[in-house]
Structures are given as C-alpha cells and as structure tokens.
Design a protein around this nucleic acid. Structure first.
Lengths: 357, 357
DNA sequence: TGCTGGCACTCAGCTCCAAAGAGTGCCAAG
DNA sequence: CTTGGCACTCTTTGGAGCTGAGTGCCAGCA
C-alpha cells in the first residue's frame, strides 16, 4: 500500500518507483497499455502479476497511471511521465555514431545561421522528432557595425553585424533619396557612435540624440538618426526566427495515425507565434522537458518538448530542442538535445572570440 | 451510342459533353459519385435516368468517368477532368471582393520579395488551396550593381541588385582578408564593368578576363575576378526560392480525411525539389492546369495544379499558382491565378521602369 | 430509332450478435 | 505480505442479415 499522500510525491516507495519506471519504459517502447502480466514477464520483479496489480492500483490512486478502460492495462499519466523524468530516468549516453554525425556536420559549416539550421535538421533526423532551433529577438544583440547599401529609389538595404557573429539584414524605405556616399557616411557615423551597444540601447540613445538641440543644425546627425531609427526601430527579419524541421517525421508516429490527431498536430506546429511565446518563457538554464498538459501549447495535442538554452556563458542566446509525442524516448533524446545545445554554444563562443581578436 | 473513338476525343457528341460537364460540376461541388438520378434531378436534361445511364455508360467506355464499385455513381477520371477543363469549363469572373482584396494588399507592399510572399498567401486564402510562388534561378537576372560588405574575418556579405528589382544576398568566405576599402573598390569595379549583363554572362566574362594576360599584373582586376566568381559562381540563396503557403487548408479537405492520404500529401508538398523541377518544365505561357496523373509529381497524390508564368513581357520570371486536390473548383480558381499572374507581372514591370528612369 | 419504365442484381455500409481474448479486482489460503 | 483462482468487464473481431443506392439490361412505346 502507499503510505504517501499524492502531494509529497517524490518519495514513492521504492517498489512502486520501480514498477512505475518499468511501466513508463515499456509503454514508451511498445505504445500499448501495460498489463500486470507483461510487467511480471519482464523478469525485473520477483512478484506475481496479482501483486503487481496491487502496486499498479496504488499508482493509479496516486495519479501516475491510468486505464483507458476498465479491463485494460496501465498507461502513464503526464504526472507519471513527470515523475519518471525527474526521478527514474537514466539518460543513455550518445552513441559514437550520433556524436560523430553531429561533430562532422557542424565542423563543416561556419556561418552561424547555417549552423542553426543544420542543428534543427540534425536534431530532427537523429531523434526522429521535430527539431526546433529558436533564435530570440535581437533586442539584446550588441552591434558591431552597420552598413547601408542603396538598392533602388528610396530603398536601402541595411546590414547589422553583431559581436556574436549574427548578421541581420533588412530592407527599408526612406523618406528622401540618399546617394551611395551619403549612405556610407551615415553608416560610418552610426557605427562609430553606437558600436558596442545593444540594439535596445542604440534605439534609446538615437531617440534622445534626435531630441537634443544639436540635431537642429547638424544635418548628418539628424538624417543619421532618422534613418537609424528606421533600421533599429522595426522588427528585424531575423528576429524571432524559428527553425522547425522534420514535421514529416511526426506524421508517421502511431499516436497521430488518425486523421484528426494528425491535423491538430500539424496545425499546432504551424502556430509559430504560440510556440515562440512558450519558448520565450523558459527561463531556467539546462535541459528542460515539458510534458503534455504542463504547457499551454502542448496541452491539447499529446505533444511534449525537450529543449535547452544555448549561447555563450555571458549572453544567453536562444532555445534548441525537439518536439514530439509525449510517448517518446526521453532517455535517448535528452542527451542529444543537451549535446546540441553545447555544440551551438561553443560555436557561438568561437565566433565571438574570433571577432574579439 | 458513341460513334467516336477514344483517341479523337475532343469531339464528343453534344449530349455526352453536357452530361460529362454536369457530372464534373456536380462532383466538384458534392464530392460523392454522381448517379443518373441526380443528373436527371438537376433539370438540365429532358431525359429519364435510364437514358442518362446509357450516356454515362458510353462516357465510361471512353474513359471519361469511372465507378468506384459496380453499384455506385460516376466519378470523373483525370481524362474527364482534362476534357472538362479544355472544352467544357466556364470560368467565373473574379468577384469584386476578390479583386479588391488582391489590389489593396498588393498596392500596400513595394518590396518585390514581399509581394511574392504576399501573393502566395493571398492565393492560398482566396482559393482555400495551397498557394505557390516560384522564383526561378537568377542565372538570367541582369545585374545592376554589386555591393560587398565585410562582416567578419574573411567573411563578406554580397548584395546583388538586379534591374528587375530583385535583390539577392549571399555570404561568402574569402581566401584573404579584405579591408572595407578594398572591398568597396572591388565592388565598384565589378559594378562598372559588368552592370547590364546577366549573371551567366558575368560569370563567363569574369572567367575569360581572369585567364587573360592582363590579370597577371593588375592586382585589382585579379582579386576582383576571384572574389566575383565566388559571388556569382555558387547557388545564390534566393535562387529557386519557392514559397509554399497554406498547407493547412489542404488538411481539412475531405479527400485527405484518412491519415494515409494526408501523410502522403504532406510529404509530397515538402518535396520542394521535385516541385521545382515540375515548375521549371512548364514552358507554355498562359494558364496551365495539370491534372493528377498528368505529372510525375501530382501522380500519386490526387493533386492538381493551376499555375501560370509571370514576369515582364521581355523577361519571363517565374511561376505562380495553386496546388490542391484534383477535385477543385477550376472555374473559380483559374481566373484567380491568372489575375495574380498579371498583378505580379505588372508589379515587376513597374519596378523595372522605376529603375530605368 | 431513340426513350423510358420496370426489374433483377450488386455492393457498401450499418446493426446486431456471439465468441474470444486481455485484463482487472477481489478473496481466501499459504 | 504474497499468490493462485475466479468472476467480471470491456474491447475487438467476424459473420449474418438488412437496407438503400445505384446500375445494366430488356421489352415496350412513340
């Protein structure tokens, strides 16, 4: 019997823990409700099915497992998964092969944008789930230089290079027509004046400079600020960029075998804004696993996420991870995500150093 | 009885034509096999169901319709659709509303890339199908100017502006480190030397210039050519860009209600390379409708396309259209696609003129 | 000759039922 | 506390039977 109450749940009787673990593991690999007999057959318990049934009934009372119908085996609840993940799971190490594939691929690319794209593809492929790489707002990006290139009548292409190697580009419409030389002068001015600040800070200072007395008679200053605000002001194209790769792989999962579940899932994955919101809310460092009902987003859909933040130690950068059915191999996927987080972070630090020198 | 043989099919007896037309129209709107009775009920024929059955049997012999099983009504075959499209279909005019939505939206955007994106969204929304806009290779793009911006150690951002307003950007790795000034000089040199040529021609001339005697001692020339070839040589990022918008909408079509069809369809839509290949093969001008089995791509999937080329009169540009289940309202969708093709073309011509002046 | 009503036939889809199988819960005995 | 046994529940599967929609064909009629 369970002498623990549901609220102080992290101390299940040792036997119950083992049973719960076995249920989750078996369920993850089979996908069917787990019966007392199949637990007994596993050989992991010196107990008869009847005894296991008692334990299972307790686990059900505590809300860790449930039966889809009276005469069926047990399936872990989200709560059961949670407990499994927090206390029972043993992460597998990465295989040499996985590590090799990642290292090799990543070493071949140098452009940061590409690396991120690559990572989401790799994640998707290696985990057979949907890979995510999220590159958060550039508000905190530190500007290293700005370039302005005339493209057409009153149309200017802006290129902002950040200290962390991220490059943002944006097309803007200008009020007046600037010549190539004027644009060059303005860009040099802005670079010299604002390099080293975050875009947020740049925006603030530009605004205040524009309000100052000096802007009245300093033509270069004024047009620079007006143009600059245009650049920094709006949403940059790369902002909130979210790579979602491998939606296919999720289509063949048995939990989405019926058309309705499939449709719902696909629609959910298209709602990037919602996803971005959730990802933005993650504020702990390290690996984070969100199980089904724990999040607004994954709530309805039997979806879970395994994600981690990446970025240089000094400056958090974004979120990388996978999204897939709640019934997934957390033990295999967690180290994968963790490793890719590390790889991305290292890559970013490398680029920063390179630039620093 | 049909006195025509299947091969000279475009001259069906007038009555058969009407029946086929009615079958296709009804089937498109209902989605269920069409019976002789429901044709009779339509009031369009002064004939009894029994007589219509005879006509239908003829149409079946000629391969225009088929029965999913012996005691079911008739469904058009791909061949039936083809005949309908070529000879029987009456295109509806665009509604004021549709026209309004398109005009208003398009007039609000000026950036060409954005316009294309917008068009695929509009198409998808207005047709409730998957919208496509395909921007073909830039090989034939005429270069107006080139800019080179240093981004990091041996990394350079290139911006090519075409005479038609298309802007391509690309990040390249260089052998040596160029200063901002050097890059500026190189860019100016290339622009002055090659503006007005297509990228293909640019590539050729650069290669031959590099092989010339002069390149031995003219340092600027040599490094310009090496860098330039790097820029023009590889595949540019925008090349083959294909916007696919509104995959959601297809998910709720009844023909994809079962999970398997849905999965296949989604997978098909992800295969952009294949799609690009098909789109590239379209070489007729004007509206083109590809029905199911007529194309490699749409073969397996019950998919059809309605597409048209767009671009200025002088220079074809790309392909715009929709993709959806074979059972779709061709009469409503065709003018929509045609109109969007016109709109895009006009937009492109406008940008060219603007630049020409 | 062409059209039509009638009729036999086919077939998908639904409901109903029975049997099988998988599992559970509970109890009494070890 | 464990366990074998047993009754019970519930899903799944398959078959039988019925219904309705539709067809093809034929014979009679204009």
């Amino acid at each position: 019997m369970a002498q623990k109450n549901p609220t102080s749940a992290d101390q299940l009787e040792s036997r119950s823990r083992e049973v719960l673990r076995e249920i989750v593991i078996q369920y993850i690999s089979e996908g069917d409700p787990i019966s007392s007999r199949s637990l007994a057959r596993s050989g992991r318990f010196a107990l008869s099915p009847a005894s296991l049934r008692n334990v299972m009934a307790d686990l059900e009372d505590l809300g860790y497992v449930f039966q889809p119908h009276t005469s069926a085996g047990r399936i872990p609840t989200d709560r059961g998964y949670r407990f499994f993940i927090d206390h029972l799971m043993k992460s597998r190490k990465l295989t040499l092969h996985e590590r090799g594939v990642i290292d090799e691929n990543v070493s071949r690319t140098s452009e940061l944008d590409e690396v991120m794209h690559l990572c989401s593809r790799l994640l998707s492929k290696l985990s057979d789930q949907v890979g995510l790489v999220f590159m958060p707002t550039l508000e905190h990006l530190t500007m290293r230089s700005l370039d302005l290139v005339p493209v057409a009548d009153r149309r200017v292409m802006c290129i902002i290079v950040g200290t962390n190697g991220v490059v943002a580009d944006k097309m803007i419409q200008t009020e007046q027509n600037f010549s190539r030389d004027e644009l060059g002068r303005i860009a040099r001015y802005i670079t010299s004046e604002f390099a080293g600040l975050t875009l947020d800070e740049v925006r603030l200072r530009m605004q205040s400079l524009l309000d100052e007395e000096r802007a009245r008679y300093d033509e270069l200053l004024r047009s620079s600020m007006i143009l600059g605000l245009e650049v920094v002001g709006g949403v940059l194209p790369h902002e909130h960029e979210l790579f979602v790769e491998g939606t296919n792989s999720i289509l063949s999962k048995p939990e989405f075998a019926n058309a309705d579940a499939m449709r719902k899932t696909m629609l959910a994955l298209q709602e990037k804004e919602k996803l971005v919101k959730i990802l933005n809310q993650l504020n702990e460092d390290g690996l984070r696993i969100v199980v089904g009902s724990e999040s607004q987003f994954t709530h309805d859909y039997n979806l879970s996420m395994v994600v981690t933040k990446y970025g240089s130690a000094s400056r958090p950068h974004g979120v990388v991870g996978i999204i897939g059915p709640t019934r997934m191999e957390y033990g295999r996927i967690s180290p994968l995500v963790a490793y890719l987080g590390q790889v991305l972070s290292r890559k970013i630090e490398e680029t920063e150093e390179e630039r620093g020198s």
